[in-house]
Each structure stands twice: as C-alpha cells, then as structure tokens.
Design a protein around this nucleic acid. Structure first.
Lengths: 114, 114
DNA sequence: CTGAATCCTTTTGGATACTG
DNA sequence: CAGTATCCAAAAGGATTCAG
C-alpha cells in the first residue's frame, strides 16, 4: 500500500463555526493582545500601570477591555490587593503558558516568511 | 550555575510594529481566510466557484478580496485559463504549506483549551 | 464563470473626562 | 492606582448590482 494517511483539515466543519483554530485566533487577535501577553510573559507578573507604560500607544479603554477578555478566556489571572491605593497584578495562567511555545513557532515562521 | 536560559519574547519591539507574530495573525486573520486556506488545502486545487459553494455564507466581495490578499501575501497561487468561459484555479504555495502544521498545532490547542 | 464597484451596516478601536 | 462611561472615528464586513 502507498501512503494513504488522511490529512487533518484546518477546520472540521463547513461553516467554520466552532473551529478550534479560529477560536484561538480570535482570543489572541485584536490590536493589543499579543503585546499584552508578551509583556506579562516577560515579567512573570505586572501591574496595570506597568502594562500601560510598557505598551506604547495603548489607552485605558483598550487595555482594560483586552485584559478583561484575556481573563474571561482564561489566559490571564487578575489579583487585587486592597491596599491604599489599590494594587492589581496580572500574570499568565498555565493555559496561556502552554500556548506561548506555539505562538513562538508562529512568530518564527513569520520572521522567515513575511 | 542554575538555569539561566533567556526566554524568547513574543514580540521583539516595544511598539509591536513589525512583530513577526502579529504579521502572521494578520495575514491569516479576518473572518474567512482560515476557511479558504482549509478548503484549498483539502482539495489541492480549487476553482473560484467551488470555494464560494464550499464556504457557507461567504459573498463574492469577501471571497475575492480575501483571495487577493492571500495571493499578495504569498499563501495562495492563482492560475487563469483563458477558455470560454474563463476558468480560474487556486492552490496553496509552498510557503502556505509550511504554515499549515503550525496552524494545526494551534487548532489542537484550541480544541483542548477553549 | 470570475470577479469589480458601489453603497451600507456592524464591529473595532480611540479620545476625553470622570470615579472608587 | 486602576479602572469606567460616553461619545466618536476608522476599519472590517456585507448586499446588491454590474462587467469582461
């Protein structure tokens, strides 16, 4: 017999709805999320203000919204310390950490091919 | 000495401009591109009309625009046969084929984690 | 058959001011 | 300090019609 292995398709359903690949692209897509993940990953844990200063051009609106979505999607963890003034720290979840290596492969591909 | 390997950052520059990772997400992002790549990948070579019928809900506007961008970005190749009526076929480039395995990893991660 | 052109709607992103 | 609220601008997506 020859090589008759079935090829795995990028999407499993005709409409693309619920496609695992599209889901991933959605949760890390958008204008700022990769940068946010990057800064948190580089520092292990960062405060809100650090993120805003580190990411050139981001506004409160976008930073707060993006962080909330990343938290909802289980990529980022938020810890609030009720001091005065309040302090909030963000770190990557295990889930997010397991995604980083794949994103790095993608990055490498982009550097080599775009 | 302990473990002092440097971690590779998701983005190499502070602004995120020209980040290889963001570039990749941009060229395969958007509402339809993954589906388009998927259908072409599954069939090796497909005609315009096949694509439109295969991708539920896509319009001429979006299909034509997306194909043009994919072609510009070097992921898709377009071959026109000047018959009557005209026939056009699309296939993946080598570049695109080298990207597929990484996208499949991403897909797997999405299925396991979202 | 394979699109292009036009116009419109929806979504995303941003500026500014304000709050616990 | 860490956000919200409101309003506005820009970009992405879509319906429809037309053309080579």
């Amino acid at each position: 017999m020859g090589n008759n292995k079935k090829k795995e398709p990028l999407c499993d359903n005709i409409a693309g709805e619920g496609c695992g690949l599209k889901k991933v692209i959605n949760i890390v897509g958008g204008k700022w999320k990769i940068m946010i993940l990057c800064v948190i990953d580089n520092n292990e844990v960062v405060r809100y203000g650090e993120l805003r200063r580190a990411i050139h051009g981001i506004t409160n609106t976008m930073l707060a919204n993006s962080l909330k979505e990343l938290e909802t999607d289980g990529l980022v963890e938020r810890k609030q310390y009720d001091e005065m003034p309040v302090r909030v720290e963000y770190n990557l979840t295990k889930k997010a950490k397991s995604l980083i290596p794949i994103l790095l492969e993608l990055k490498k591909w982009g550097e080599d091919n775009i």
